[in-house]
């Protein structure tokens, strides 16, 4: 069983990320359940999604302390879900910061130190997904870069991921998304 948590900011397209994970699992002949947050929090609030992939999945909810991989589409949001992680879990952090209201209004400090400290307990992979996506030709493909990194750590064939990805992006964005996926997959 692999438990994957995705955390980010409303509007980052997390629902598509969990959809792609679910469809990749289906194609690979595995069982899967996902969660998504939908509703008012889409307006720049904290959002999250999750996927559990394995032989047989009962609950879509990841038990506390059992998340294997956390995809932090925004650093503060990665930090927020630390409690869900197992020891030694992989944490992918997209470096682009989106500041919450209280930080914009100078009422709170962005927790840079705590985010940095994640490295003490987890395998942290830092990536400027927005810059990498721009390189691939489409700024909107930032999530695809991160999905590429995830794919590297899953027991699902690379071709399956690519196939599902192509089914889920508009035709004109296909090239950029495949490039972005490859950048992620090869990311060191």
């Amino acid at each position: 069983m692999k438990n994957i948590m995705v955390a980010g900011v409303g509007g980052q397209g997390l629902v598509l990320a969990t959809k792609i994970m679910a469809e990749a699992a289906l194609k690979a002949g595995l069982d899967v359940k996902t969660n998504d947050v939908v509703g008012l929090s889409q307006r720049g609030g904290m959002v999250w999604g999750s996927a559990r992939i394995g032989k047989e999945v009962h609950s879509p909810n990841i038990p506390v302390g059992e998340a294997d991989i956390l995809l932090g589409m925004e650093p503060l949001e990665a930090l927020r879900w630390k409690g869900l992680l197992r020891k030694g879990a992989i944490v992918v952090i997209n470096e682009k910061r989106t500041y919450p209201s209280s930080v914009l209004l100078e009422q709170a400090e962005y927790p840079e130190k705590e985010i940095g400290d994640l490295e003490q307990d987890y395998v942290v992979i830092r990536v400027d997904a927005v810059r990498e996506a721009k390189e691939a030709g489409n700024i909107k493909a930032a999530n695809t870069v991160v999905l590429g990194i995830l794919a590297r750590h899953m027991d699902i064939d690379r071709e399956v991921w690519e196939e599902v990805l192509l089914e889920n992006v508009p035709p004109k964005a296909m090239d950029a998304n495949i490039k972005a996926f490859n950048i992620g997959y090869e990311y060191q």
């Binding site: 900011v9 409303g10 509007g11 008012l40 929090s41 889409q42 307006r43 720049g44 609030g45 904290m46 506390v64 302390g65 503060l76 949001e77 930090l79 927020r80 879900w81 630390k82 409690g83 869900l84 919450p100 209201s101 209280s102 930080v103 709170a108 400090e109 962005y110 927790p111 705590e114």
Partner: peptide, 17 residues
């Protein structure tokens, strides 16, 4: 005794786009 899944940190309430 389990940790809370969400740690106490800066909140992120929704905001006008």
């Amino acid at each position: 005794e389990l940790e809370a899944p969400r740690v106490q940190t800066v909140p992120r309430p929704p905001m006008f786009c």
